[in-house]
Computed example of a mutant assay.
Amino acid sequence: MTREILAEAAVWVTRLHGPERSRAMERECLAWQAQSTAHRLAFERCTDTWQEVGGLSRAQIQAAVGKRRSAGSLRGRAGRVAVGLAMLCLAAVSVVLLWPGHTYGTGVGEQRMIILADGSRMTLNTSTEARVRLTDSQRTVTVEHGEALFEVAKDAGRPFVVKVADAQVVATGTQFLVRSTPPAEVAGDAFGITLIEGQVTVQRSAGSAHGVPEAPVVMAPGERLRVALSLSAARQAPAQIRLDRPQLDRLLAWNRGFVMLDGTTLPEAVAEMNRYSRVPITLRDQETLNALRISGTFRTGDNNAFAQAVARLFDLVVTLRDGGLELASK
């Protein structure tokens, strides 16, 4: 059980004992606990702490712990649990607030929801890394690579800034999606920002000649801002931005464990499925297969089922090769 999980558990307990408790919040908490045994035990530990210490103030708890350390005056299980777990739970909350920064990440096929100390939620998709820094004046998250869904707690005095590539997204209380692709892997968009609700302002710092900042873009709900990076200019500033209105259900399907495809070319569909699996799919006979398009909903991480479905649909052959799956014409 890590300090990080304990910190998240402490925030959950605090929120559930607050005035904004709701059935939706309870369901989200249960989903958080279901992520692992460590999550469940951390929640139980912080709940026990809350019940044990009752009306004790933080100063009283700290004084009691100091007394215990210096004189060993507290004896028995009740004393150890009431003081030890109280400090563990409350210190966990303090750790999130006081750390100068922390990096969160997910592996291939992993998804993770993190509750920040300000109450904001950050849900990381597969193969994602994000750095968080919370101060008294600003809340900052840097998405190094991957995809993250942000549900920002309102705090007019502390803007919530998400940095991705050469841009930053500024919000005070809203919900939006950020997806970033490392330069070495770019085949289309370098990054994309989708606003689900509320309002955000996107400012690029080096999108125009001579590094002159571009005019900020104020996005409306339902809009997606995308920045493409041409392969011939991989080390230069990304091209101009594009705005469109995608199907939000399709973009957020990963949060439910699915990939939704709608007339997607087979290479693009394979690339998307490969994000969630350590059993990659490759294509042989590129000239023939590149023209194929596929629609449907597929479970993330199940590349075998996807490959078999595509093979049946287009009369292809699936072969096990080098630890992965190869799709080829008959």
Rank of each mutant, 00 (worst) to 15 (best):
G222Q: 03
E223S: 06
E223R: 09
R224T: 09
L225K: 14
L225V: 15
L225Y: 15
R226F: 08
R226C: 10
V227Q: 07
A228I: 12
S230F: 13
S230H: 12
L231N: 14
L231I: 12
L231T: 13
R235Y: 07
R235C: 10
Q236E: 03
Q236V: 03
Q236R: 07
Q236K: 06
A237C: 04
A237R: 08
P238R: 04
Q240A: 13
R242S: 15
R242Y: 11
L243I: 07
L243T: 07
D244T: 13
P246V: 10
Q247L: 00
Q247M: 00
L248R: 11
L248H: 09
L248W: 04
R250S: 11
L251M: 07
W254V: 01
W254D: 00
N255K: 15
R256K: 15
G257C: 06
G257W: 06
G257Y: 05
G257M: 05
F258M: 01
F258A: 01
M260E: 07
M260N: 06
D262I: 11
D262V: 11
G263N: 09
T264F: 04
T264L: 07
T264P: 01
T265E: 04
T265M: 06
L266Q: 01
L266G: 01
P267M: 15
P267W: 14
P267V: 15
P267G: 11
E268H: 15
E268Y: 12
A269S: 04
V270F: 04
A271N: 09
A271Y: 08
E272S: 08
M273S: 00
N274H: 09
R275F: 05
Y276L: 12
Y276M: 14
Y276W: 15
S277C: 03
R278Q: 06
V279A: 14
I281P: 00
I281S: 00
T282P: 03
T282G: 05
T282V: 06
L283C: 01
D285Q: 14
D285G: 13
Q286W: 13
Q286G: 11
T288N: 04
L289Q: 03
A291E: 07
L292F: 14
L292T: 10
R293Y: 07
I294H: 00
I294E: 00
S295R: 10
G296H: 09
T297N: 11
T297I: 14
T297W: 09
T297K: 12
T297L: 13
F298T: 01
G301L: 04
D302F: 08
N303P: 03
N303H: 12
N303F: 14
N304L: 14
F306T: 02
A307N: 05
Q308S: 03
A309K: 07
V310A: 06
F314M: 11
F314D: 05
D315H: 15
D315P: 13
D315A: 15
L316D: 01
V317C: 04
T319D: 06
T319F: 07
R321Q: 09
R321D: 11
